[in-house]
Design a protein around this nucleic acid. Structure first.
Lengths: 131, 131
DNA sequence: CCCCTTTAATTACCTAGGTAACTATTTAAT
DNA sequence: ATTAAATAGTTACCTAGGTAATTAAAGGGG
């Protein structure tokens, strides 16, 4: 067992936990935030667009989106194709968005504080080589 | 949202999926293998030793260990302290271990094939700086 | 000795991911 | 126009992680 993989999995789990802590005050979980962020960027998206963009399977998005809708973060409506579901942020979600984003950015800066931007882009490059 | 985090989470999820594929022929999941490997290295471990070593929470290990016991991979017995549960590999698990390990090593080599060992240790160093 | 605290493990309940199988709609081919 | 294939989304069922609360045993102080 290569320690690199172990480190990678462990670090990621740890960071995810930290993001959850950061988002706790906004009553959100990390993956919910990821979906919100992604929809915010695109204004409106179908479920298929979301899961293709985020590189996860369809049922994951079905679940997260319906939970977010239940909680009042999202509004869904039918697209022209009657099979597809189009999603956008609710007014309250749009209102709260900047503050949540600020928390996330602060967390990210804190986490990356020990790394120069050269190191950051190097890390990015190396991650992309894993495959 | 820093793309570095996105990349990190996505890569890790993808790799985990691949490890699951690799382990499918041995009827194992990635996390189950991690626990087996860890116990194999230490011969015998208590649950607390396992979750502390792997840096996860106790309930996660309770679940994975009892599933592995159910499936015949592990044998548990009481320690001197009557609260603790000591775990070791079953005979069948020990038998199958080398073949499974070989699959994992092959997968790891395949995944790391595009990286020199300098790049690998650099990646390790950079991951450790995330914090 | 008794009570309080700590520790080991578990339980209940949640998010988050996956696969496989299904429904409903749309598209394409004959 | 009808039927077959593709696409969008969902459902059921699994692993995998987390937190909070609980039980049972071990230790420590008075």
């Amino acid at each position: 067992m290569n320690p690199l993989f172990h480190e990678l999995f462990q670090r990621t789990r740890f960071l995810n936990k930290e993001v959850n802590q950061t988002l706790k005050k906004h009553d959100l979980f990390a993956s919910q935030w990821t979906v919100l962020f992604c929809i915010h960027q695109h204004t409106e998206m179908t479920l298929t667009e979301i899961w293709r963009y985020l590189n996860v399977e369809a049922p994951t998005i079905t679940r997260t989106v319906s939970r977010l809708e239940e909680l009042g973060w999202l509004i869904t409506h039918e697209g022209k194709d009657r099979r597809e579901k189009v999603v956008r942020l609710s007014v309250e979600a749009k209102d709260k968005f900047p503050e949540i984003e600020a928390s996330i950015i602060e967390f990210e800066n804190e986490t990356l504080k020990g790394m120069s931007s050269e190191e950051q882009s190097l890390l990015m490059t190396l991650l992309k080589k894993l495959n």
